[in-house]
Design a protein around this nucleic acid. Structure first.
Length: 681
RNA sequence: GGGUGCGUAACUCAGCGGAUAGAGUAGCUGCCUUCUAAGCAGCGAGUCGUAGGUUCAAGUCCUACCGCACCCGCCA
């Protein structure tokens, strides 16, 4: 099962070899979707650039390619047009065959990557003791989506939350904590994060205003780094409080993330400086240990240093990033590392990567990519600053999005004279609101700045999540009705649906099983975070890679089980009368395509792999959004023009199956964006 | 001053060296006795910042300039 574009590329390559020799065996043909539907579905541009190389006119070359081209099994006879384009139009029979072949494939024909890689996606990364705000939204949402796509393609993905759990701000926080709430140093849960944010501000005020306090704070950092018991305890307390609050956000957003903060790399920092010393890169400047960079200058044209050890003896973030790189390559065995952070850090990463290369920490076989995204700006076009006091908290943003969606739903319920349960309304509003927030972010090219606006983000028309979810819900509605009819006609009553009691038992078993898995995987994880024990494990011969693999397996099964439970809860809450039988397997009919909207929809369904492949290589989730939006548009056009349930057989069954494939494609795509679907809305 | 990114319809943005540059919003006009109208069909809207260059072909690549934003030695 291969997608049309890949097949055509292959055929063009074969034709080129036949026409011009084996030099073209490794040539990458320029086959692309047609620029305009009137030219067909795909076009080859290969004749044009070859004109120079082969000293012939493009149209003549096109003729020769055409003479060797064998595509009669999928296209109408191709035609040469314009200066030398070759246009392809897929036949309805081929489209139908391809779609039929995908009906029982959960991957919808999207093949796993040929070369599976171990990929680290470093994203989200908020700072401890601060609240997550809109600035974290982009990293979190984009990073999650990229990780999902890479996982779907079969890569071994490690999602790391590089939280800011270390650094000078902790000196300030601990010093202040010691001053105003000494009880917190000994009693658990004496403060909560709501207070902690205020607490941070107060500490900062104190820090800015009082020279003496600044000195105390500095000493506190030294004590913490030296491992003083009570300082460490205060630090852990602050981290734990913060972590709990972050987790609430991640749960709401359905983000799976493994915390491994900056402090994790602390033991490796002196080694990094030693390595730099040994490789002769380290220089002292004004009391600081630095590496002077190639191609970076300061205002006076002097080489710019990357400081790895401050004059006060402390390390800073560049050192931590170098250590993290070393660990991720050496211990995690990463082959590709993605850093999903704002574009403002581009310089920093270029510098760190440069030093890492020169020091031999980073070798050619590892790909490190800074995946930048634009700023979150206010309506005034200025950056939304953390300390402005005007920054929108993520919590509030999500609340507001949900409230907005709820108001809209309530209005629709009144207008449509519908009665729905409170839990239904809550479920729909929550899903739609959060989906809207995610989609608004993902659907934009991440490199451009993002003008933050409730109005636009939560608009429920146009290229938005609600539009896609609505298209999905409409399809499911048809399928429910159509499938039930089909069942009444064709199926004995005994096979109808699943008993709720059976479901309940299954859910219970799943829960128990996954809890067990969770505990096991958690233990393995905890062991792994203690370097000594991890080393011991290696000694016993388990081996790091084995551990990594098994943990991922467990995590994946764990996740699947959780998702299934969630799905069941959703069904129950949404009050669906009975589980919807899948069409696949119920019907002996096949997809046949006659009407134009059916063909247009079919062709688009067969471009899913192109969209996914683009996200994987370009790391731009907006390409997938664009694909899904166009798919929804094409489905809605089909919906308008082609009645499904009232159509005579075999058209009815064929269209029902087309609906089902569209629904599954939408669901898969949205899942890869981190957005769940709704059966009804 | 140096660096990075951006500049496309009234607004928000897509755009992969290829044929006549696309969506969505907002505005206007139609379409619900028929599968969910959060929908569909239609209309208007452009010197792709400016000027050069590379190329058979440039919104896309290169150079310069203009404008905006961000980064630039001990924060991350």
């Amino acid at each position: 099962m291969t997608y049309p574009l890949a097949v055509l590329q292959q055929r063009v390559r074969q034709a080129l070899v036949a026409a011009f020799g084996s030099d073209f065996a490794t040539y990458d043909p320029l086959v692309v979707p047609a620029s305009n539907p009137k030219f067909g579905d795909y076009q080859s541009n290969d004749a044009l650039p070859l004109a120079k190389r082969l000293q012939q006119k493009p149209r003549d070359l096109a003729e020769q390619i055409l003479a060797q081209l064998q595509v009669s099994d999928l296209c109408t006879p191709p035609a040469i047009a314009g200066p030398g384009f070759i246009n392809f139009a897929l036949t309805p029979a081929y489209l139908a065959r391809q779609l039929n072949a995908r009906r029982n494939d959960p991957r919808l024909g999207v093949a796993p990557a040929k070369q599976r890689q171990r990929v680290i996606v470093d994203f989200s990364s908020p700072n401890i003791a601060k609240e997550m705000h809109v600035g974290h939204l982009r990293s979190t949402i984009i990073g999650d989506s990229l990780a999902r796509v890479l996982e779907f393609r079969g890569h071994d993905v490690l999602r790391l939350n590089h939280v800011g759990d270390w650094g000078t701000q902790f000196g300030m926080l601990i010093a202040y904590l010691r001053e105003v709430q000494p009880a917190a140093l000994t009693t658990a849960d004496a403060v909560d994060l709501g207070d902690l944010v205020v607490f941070y501000r107060q500490a900062k005020q104190r820090f800015d205003a009082d020279e003496q306090f600044r000195e105390t704070a500095r000493q506190e950092v030294v004590k913490l780094q030296a491992g003083a018991e009570d300082s460490r305890r205060a630090w852990q307390l602050i981290c734990a409080q913060s972590r709990r609050e972050f987790q609430k956000i991640y749960d709401r957003l359905d983000i799976d993330l493994q915390e491994r903060g900056e402090s994790f790399y602390n033991p490796l920092l002196p080694g990094i400086v030693e390595t730099l010393e040994r490789t002769g890169l380290l220089e002292e400047n004004a009391g600081a240990q630095c590496v002077f960079l190639d191609g970076f200058q300061n205002k006076d044209g002097q080489p710019l240093p990357l400081i790895v050890k401050k004059s006060d003896g402390g390390f800073n973030y560049a050192t931590t990033d170098l250590a993290a790189l070393q660990y991720r390559i050496g211990k995690d065995e990463a082959e590709r590392i993605l850093y999903v952070t704002d574009a403002g850090q581009a310089n920093h990463f270029t510098q760190v990567f440069q030093v890492a290369r020169r020091a031999g920490l980073l070798t050619e076989d590892v790909e490190v990519v800074h995946v930048p995204f634009g700023l979150v700006q206010g309506e005034d076009g200025k950056k939304l600053k953390t300390r402005s006091g005007e920054t929108v908290r993520l919590r509030d943003l999500l609340d507001e999005a949900v409230a907005w969606a709820r108001a809209d739903l309530d209005k629709r319920l009144v207008e449509g004279d519908r009665q729905e349960s409170e839990s239904f309304s809550q479920q729909v509003a929550t899903t739609v609101g959060i989906a809207a927030v995610k989609y608004a972010d993902l659907s934009q090219n991440r490199t451009s700045n993002y003008i933050f606006s409730f109005d636009k983000m939560l608009a429920l028309q146009g290229n938005t999540a609600p539009y896609l979810l609505y298209a999905y819900a409409r399809i499911r509605s048809i399928i429910r009705k159509g499938a039930i009819d089909l069942a009444a006609q064709n199926q004995p009553a005994t096979t109808r649906g699943v008993q709720w009691s059976v479901l309940a038992i299954a859910a219970g078993a799943l829960f128990a099983g996954s809890a067990g898995l969770y505990i096991t995987s958690r233990m393995l994880h905890e062991i792994g975070t203690i370097p000594f024990l991890a080393g011991l494990l290696q000694l016993v011969g388990i081996g790091y890679s084995l551990r990594f693999g098994s943990r991922n397996l467990l995590r994946q099964r764990d996740r699947q089980a959780f998702r299934q439970r969630l799905q069941q809860t959703r069904l129950a809450v949404l009050g669906e009368p009975r589980p919807t039988p899948r069409l696949v397997g119920h019907s002996t009919g096949a997809i046949e395509l006659r009407e134009e909207p059916e063909l247009v929809l079919a062709k688009h369904l067969l471009q899913l792999d192109e969209a996914i492949a683009e996200v994987e290589t370009e790391l731009l989730p907006n390409r997938l959004c664009q694909y899904l939006f166009e798919l929804s548009q094409k489905y809605n056009q089909f919906y308008d023009a082609c009645p499904v349930l009232s159509a005579p057989e075999p058209v009815r069954t064929s269209r029902l199956m087309l609906c089902e494939l569209t629904a599954r494609t939408l669901q898969l795509g949205l899942t890869l964006l981190g957005i769940p679907v709704l059966e009804r809305m």
